[in-house]
Design a protein around this nucleic acid. Structure first.
Lengths: 204, 204
DNA sequence: CGAATTGGATACGACAACGTATCGGATGCA
DNA sequence: TGCATCCGATACGTTGTCGTATCCAATTCG
């Protein structure tokens, strides 16, 4: 077994990698993967292309790392939201599904990036495998939280949790999308608040 | 009022425009707007860039025309599916919402293009206005069909038709997306078949 | 049938984005 | 403090894409 001894990344190096990644996520959200040039990203990060190619081998390389972080952050948010055991079902679920739509920075950036990653995954087989695995982790996390919460309240859902979660994701993303395209036509959370309780078997 | 006398487009010209547009929609679906070069499109259409610039002023010009056709075709499909008055509610609705996901050519292309248009609209204010108007027409068409069908059966929906339609769109697109990313994880129509009847107030 | 017009092909110059090879300042270490 | 290494900046040449200016064939029309 040839375990390539990872040449330890210095703190300095890690810092510039982080800055580049952060810049990239903002530029990608603004212009899309193809629309973003390496120079755009470097400009925003305050570096030159030299720095970029010293840290990453290509834009694709960047995308892989970025999508990984993107999903990891989401799983974390879901997990944290699910921990509030004192709250009632509806509160917990609201928090959990708010997490789907809420990045501490900006919902818009988050949704656009998610969509970009998805398109990228549809087009590139390798990216697809990675993205599929990440999506599955997100769903699994949601299933766990929903099951726990629902069980605590002794509810019985009219549909399997997995399908409920898939529906919830679709609704959250769909309503965000509709709101971004037609800002004043749909109140924040209206769609989810109307539909999800029905799918939980609650009259609410 | 200066009504610029439209210089009538010849049949030949219209034919090449059509071929270019068809090629563009296929290339856009494969590589995205930014990823597609004018030359890519011309190659696929069997023309040179000379022909392109003789017919369109830019790639953006193309996108506008294309998104218009895209939505028009969808409205048509919905309208046709809604006309089958002999069928039962569930059949009609299945057909109608299948129309959401079904282009005679390819569902995949249709979904990807819809997503590309949406991203484009989020980024470009002018494109947004056009796309928002088109989305509204699609929804209105769906609301009409659903109302008619539901009324014919004397059902009462637990939520307003408009919200039902928005949810149905989100679910259809979400499930298609999930299926494209993780092909074997969700059966075709499973999500919609499970959720929509509940939202219609049917036990099914 | 011949002249005028239309419509696409060809050929060109400009430029933007890429990736690399090299340089020089900062940083870590003895 | 002096040396070695790291890492980002600079400065290329290369390529891909654009948009236009011009040419030539096909079509239209008198």
């Amino acid at each position: 077994m040839t375990t390539t001894a990872e040449p330890r990344i210095s703190a300095r190096r890690q810092a510039t990698r982080d800055r580049v990644l952060e810049a990239a996520s903002s530029v990608f959200a603004e212009r899309g993967f193809h629309g973003a040039t390496v120079e755009d990203i470097c400009d925003r990060a305050g570096f030159t292309r030299g720095a970029f190619y010293s840290n990453f081998s290509s834009k694709d390389d960047l995308v892989v790392e970025l999508s990984r972080r993107h999903s990891e952050a989401l799983v974390d948010r879901i997990r944290r939201a699910g921990k509030r055991e004192h709250a009632g079902t509806d509160e917990v679920l609201r928090d959990v599904f708010a997490a789907l739509a809420d990045d501490s920075r900006s919902k818009e950036r988050w949704l656009v990036l998610t969509t970009e990653f998805t398109l990228h995954a549809i087009r590139d087989p390798e990216a697809r495998r990675a993205w599929a695995a990440q999506q599955r982790r997100v769903r699994d996390e949601l299933v766990t939280v929903v099951d726990e919460t629902v069980a605590r309240q002794g509810l019985t859902m009219p549909i399997p949790t997995e399908l409920f979660v898939r529906a919830a994701i679709a609704l959250a993303q769909g309503s965000m999308t509709q709101r971004l395209v037609e800002p004043r036509s749909l109140a924040v959370g209206e769609l989810e608040r109307t539909v999800l309780p029905i799918l939980l078997g609650v009259d609410a």
